[in-house]
Design a binder for these strands. Structure first.
Lengths: 208, 208
DNA sequence: GCAATTGTTGACCGCACGGTCCATCAAACG
DNA sequence: CGTTTGATGGACCGTGCGGTCAACAATTGC
């Protein structure tokens, strides 16, 4: 039935996949990232994946499912990065600053060019696609929780005043970060964007 | 040649338009606002405008031109609102607070539902459509200038410290506002959004 | 080696899209 | 009223879309 779930345990495999599933998903994800959902045609997906239409459908289902899969891959990956970024820094306050600055410090300026796939998808589809909206909420809530945790840690470390609500601060930081993503997409030059990011970080994260 | 420019001065008019051009543009603008560019079909545009395809094309040109016209109508209108909002308040600081809170206070919650057409368009098209990118930059720069002017006024009125750069502050406020628009689109409930908006306004606009 | 099973491929399908065109109609003018 | 002019709207068109499918290839178990 569900060929999309290809594992080695269900029945016997007559012929193994000739492609790396994750690699294909990443290529597809990049295509959606660059062009958006509606503006990406099946032909585009075939091109970037290197697979035939039939294989794509056999392995992942239709365009919508493929998109959701790519989106989930994106949120998982960037969620992992976020978690690592927030937990690896010796001081939580530095991690929070880095979080706000992320749209600017992105390696290769990917975020400035094509923004955040989750944000792009939210703007394009959230009003019409319940699945995308659900994924947006899920990601947003997870991010808020993660950031709030670091805010709490920064408070414990004495870098942030105790009288602010961690969750509320996390939401403000997230809004600031997404605002920067937006301004990057208007073509604002990187230096000005960096300056604005610094301003926001300074105002929202006063040092003690 | 250019039938898109319908005025009473070029040649003699044999038969006047049977529709209100502005009314059509507003209807079209709302359709694009609700569904986005790619997801809006010509049939949709015919439906909401009440015109036939031929009339639509004769009067406004193709879908792309029609979109740009609707977008310009939007930026003009909301630019007018912004200017009025910023200049009508007795104290500039209050106007700046209202600016940040705008995505929340929007009458009917339109902004929360479908966001800001300019932002939506930027996310959907800015990377692929130079015209939209140009419009985004134009709008962004005009808004920044307008807000910066109010920041300066708030400084003159003694409500904001003199040591901050008005333009830099304006960019931070704009980023915050757009971040709130984004969070509204993730389906965040209005109360939480309002609280976050207040937090941002308080941090970015300390009272003297 | 053969049958069974599943992955692979590209030709193919129906459809809806953006866009064009023209027969018709209504207003303006003498 | 007749002529002229432009507006009108729906029939029509070619194209590219998302999606399907049947023939073929590759692997496994016997």
């Amino acid at each position: 039935m569900d060929r999309a779930v290809n594992n080695c345990y269900a029945g016997q495999m007559a012929r193994p996949r000739q492609f790396d599933e994750e690699q294909v998903i990443r290529a597809v994800r990049d295509q959606f990232w660059d062009a958006g959902y509606a503006a990406t045609s099946l032909e585009d997906l075939v091109r970037v994946s290197g697979l035939g239409k039939g294989s794509l459908y056999g392995a992942f289902g239709d365009k919508h499912r493929l998109f959701l899969k790519a989106l989930r891959e994106y949120t998982d990956t960037s969620g992992g990065y976020l978690r690592e970024m927030l937990t690896s820094a010796p001081r939580a306050l530095d991690a929070l600053r880095a979080f706000v600055m992320a749209p600017v410090n992105d390696p290769g300026g990917a975020a400035a060019r094509r923004g955040c796939l989750m944000a792009n998808s939210t703007y394009e589809l959230a009003t019409s696609d319940p699945d995308v909206l659900a994924e947006a909420r899920r990601t947003y809530e997870a991010t808020t929780a993660l950031v709030a945790q670091s805010v709490g840690r920064a408070q414990d470390e004495g870098d942030l005043p105790r009288d602010v609500d961690p969750v509320e601060t996390a939401r403000a930081l997230l809004a600031a970060q997404q605002g920067l993503v937006f301004m990057g997409r208007t073509g604002l030059d990187i230096d000005t964007l960096t300056a604005t990011a610094r301003t926001l970080a300074a105002k929202l994260l006063p040092d003690a």
